[in-house]
């Protein structure tokens, strides 16, 4: 076991209670969180090995039926780092998304856009020794959702990361450069700090794109770090 986690900077995260995102009104705690130094339950966490990952897990274009999904082929890549800038190696990253038409393969999604018979919508991978990851997918479509009278989600990919400690657990969403719906989305706008929201927007990365094949987007993720300590005796 290593040291305590750095306290979470709640001000950079979305406001839990945000009336513009209506569902948060009944689901956000009203009382203050109980804050204290992390304990072994937060400083340890599940680890997953390479044996978990199948050869097509990170290829959402093909991993549902083997036949290719319809849509704009993209490669999403980036690094997982901690707050000290150290790579987080061999950590599990999971993604899920709507298909190119903006439809999810989920019993609760009744949007008019059709399902793609060859698109499941989930993928996963482990970061490598330098914290790098990548997956192939199709660019998801925007979709309408019941909140205001005419709210649309910008194109986005949901991303879940474990880190090495249960207290580092993070789920976020990756948006795409240039999408005018980001500024109009009550969920994206729960992040009040513009600079922090900008960090959720992946830039087009032509250098990692491949001619006649796919466009690339880069999405780096930072997890909570640990406090450095010279006092080894504190265990």
């Amino acid at each position: 076991m290593s040291g305590a986690l750095r306290p979470r900077r709640r001000e950079i995260h979305p406001r839990p209670y945000d009336p513009a995102y209506k569902t948060s009104v009944t689901r956000a705690p009203a009382l203050p969180l109980l804050s204290m130094e992390s304990t072994p339950s937060e400083e340890t966490g599940p680890r997953f090995g390479h044996s978990l990952i199948g050869p097509r897990d990170a290829d959402l274009i093909h991993n549902f039926t083997g036949n290719p999904a319809i849509g704009e082929r993209i490669r999403v890549h980036g690094r997982v780092l901690d707050e000290a800038g150290r790579p987080v190696p061999e950590t599990l990253l999971e993604v899920w998304q709507a298909n190119a038409g903006g439809r999810y393969r989920h019993v609760k999604d009744g949007y008019t856009a059709p399902l793609d018979p060859n698109f499941g919508g989930c993928g996963r991978c482990l970061t490598d020794g330098e914290g790098r990851y990548e997956f192939m997918t199709v660019k998801p479509g925007a979709y309408p959702w019941p909140n205001g009278p005419n709210d649309w989600r910008p194109a986005h990919i949901h991303v879940s990361v474990f880190g090495h400690a249960f207290g580092q657990r993070l789920i976020t969403q990756m948006y795409f450069e240039g999408d005018p719906l980001i500024a109009r989305c009550p969920i994206a706008q729960t992040v009040r700090d513009r600079a922090q929201l900008d960090r959720l927007v992946a830039p087009l990365d032509m250098g990692e794109s491949r001619g006649m094949d796919y466009l690339a987007y880069k999405f780096d993720i930072v997890l909570r770090g640990r406090r450095r300590s010279v006092f080894e005796g504190e265990m």
Binding site: I12, L81, D82, E83, A84, T172, Q173, A188, T190, Q196
Partner: peptide, 8 residues
């Protein structure tokens, strides 16, 4: 660095 912001 700063932690990446959460989203629902």
């Amino acid at each position: 660095l700063t932690e990446t912001a959460s989203q629902t």
